[in-house]
Amino acid sequence: PGTGGVIGSFVPPKSVWLHAMKGKGLEISGTFTRRSGAVFMDLNFTNRALQVMSDFAIQFNRNSFGLAPAAPLQILTPLAPNQSTEVSLPLNTVGSVMKMDPLNNLQVAIKNNIDVFYFSVVYTLHILFMEDGKMERQMFLATWKDIPNENEAQFQIRECPPNSDAVSNKLQASNVFTVARRTVDGQDMLYQSIKLTNGIWVLAELRMQPGSPSCAYVELCLKCRAPEVSPFVSQAFEAILKN
C-alpha cells in the first residue's frame, strides 16, 4: 500500500473444481498462488447439503513436479448447511513424481464425513518459478549456445502490455527475470531466465515492437533442456501478461 506501481505476482481467479452435484453437496472452488517463495492452494469449501460436514482431509496423486500438501487441511469446525469456509493449503514440491498428461495436471482426493471425492485440476506453471531464477549473464550466453536448436520453441502472445518495461516488470513480479535487453532494427528484445522448482532452467527471448498499441503481440522463443515444459511455460507467460 502506498507504493503505487508495485505489481504483485499473478493469481488466477478461483474456479469450481468440485461441483456440489458430484460432491454429495460439497462444492469446492480454488486456485494456486505463489507467495513469499511458497506455493499455496487457496480453496473455498461450501456445504450445499442438508447435513453438517466434518473430518476433512486432502491427498494428491503423484504428479509431474512432486506437488504435495505441506500440512494437513485445516478446517477445524464442522461446516453447517449453506456455510462456506476459506482455506489456504501450503504445498511443497518434494512429493512423488510421475509424469502427467498434460504435464500440469493434478489429481486430488478430498474426504469428509460423507464420502471421498476425486477431481483433476490444471495449474499455471508460474507457481513453480523460483525467486532465485535470475541466471548470471555469462551463464545465460553459454547455456543459450549450448541448448540445441531442436529444443527451441516459438510462441505468439497477443494483447500484451504496450512496452518492454511494462512487460519486464509484470513478468519479474512472477519470477521471470530479465537478464539483458537490446533494441535491434526498432524491435525490443528481452533475454530472460526462469528456474523451476525441480531445477530445470528455461531461457526466453521476447521480441516486441515498442510503441505499438496494447493489442500488439510479442514473439516468445523458449529454450530448455526439457522442451516438453515449453508449451506450459508459454501458457504461464500468456496468463501473466494478459492479467
Partner: peptide, 20 residues
C-alpha cells in the same frame, strides 16, 4: 564502466537473431 565483453556478446546475440 567495466567492459567484460558480455554487453557486446548480448548485442551480437540479438543482432544474429534479428538478422540471421
Amino acid at each position: 564502466e567495466l567492459d567484460d565483453g558480455l554487453d557486446e556478446a548480448f548485442s551480437r546475440l540479438a543482432e544474429s537473431r534479428t538478422n540471421p
